[in-house]
Design a protein around this nucleic acid. Structure first.
Lengths: 130, 130
DNA sequence: TCATGTACTTACCTTTTGGAAAGTTATGGA
DNA sequence: TCCATAACTTTCCAAAAGGTAAGTACATGA
């Protein structure tokens, strides 16, 4: 935990790196947690991934399930999650358009993290009023 | 998960609420995760709580163990964690001063969350370069 | 007298994040 | 011809988060 982790470019010369699962190349972290925070930190991402854990949802369904999120934030966060290989996006060539999002296999490895967060929140959100 | 949770003030009239474990009174969450994010979200808090999980550390030790954090951020985040009942602060009446921080019993309930985050980060920070 | 160490404050500034509201595209139906 | 729909994009703005750098208090030891 205390040993700094350095993300080296691994194979700078040969491979142009088509694996886009993780951003944050060349960055130095002091803890693995920082990487997790980069991927699902912020106000919306963990919520979104959680909703996409089991079944695909389309843009408008997701917007309904995550009250308060604006369209701008929704697309923005989904794009970043997609870039990090956490969710996948499928466009159906219809009019009006239909686009579905789901957690990828890689994204589903976040399940323990999200469930721990969910569990903690559930059990501590009204610990007061004893 | 989908049912909105509303945090009511519980006993507005009588009790002046001396329990400061959780902030975020009167707020409505759409998911328990949001509460967790309020408590350990942000760039530093989860890292700090993780370091204070087992043994107490003093201010300067913490600063050393969390490279990159400024003194301002360190005190600020520790104050918020203290207000939320996650860490406790002990001042030793000495000169030069000595102040120690540790996770409270309540704070230690975050262990599964932080460990899940740590675990995920450790196993995915270099998944590329296959 | 002066520097040292520790745990802070404070003021100011930059960066990041988030939000409101309007515009865009394409097609089929009234 | 006009409207509706879905999934955006764009612009402009506000707020929150984070960072820099300097200053403070106190007792001790040089």
């Amino acid at each position: 935990m205390s040993e700094p982790m350095t993300k080296q470019p691994a194979n700078q010369a040969a491979a142009p790196a088509e694996d886009k699962r993780l951003k944050a190349q060349d960055k130095t972290y002091s803890s693995p947690m920082e990487l997790t925070l980069e991927v699902v930190g912020g106000k919306w991402k963990s919520l979104l991934v959680y909703h996409l854990m089991e079944a695909p949802l389309r843009f408008s369904e997701l917007r309904r399930q995550v009250p308060g999120i604006t369209e701008k934030m929704l697309t923005q966060q989904l794009r970043e999650l997609e870039r990090d290989g956490i969710v996948s996006r499928t466009v159906f060539p219809e009019v009006p358009p239909r686009v579905e999002y789901v957690a990828t296999e890689h994204g589903r490895t976040l399940k323990p993290v999200l469930e721990a967060m969910c569990h903690w929140g559930r059990h501590h959100w009204q610990q007061r009023t004893p």
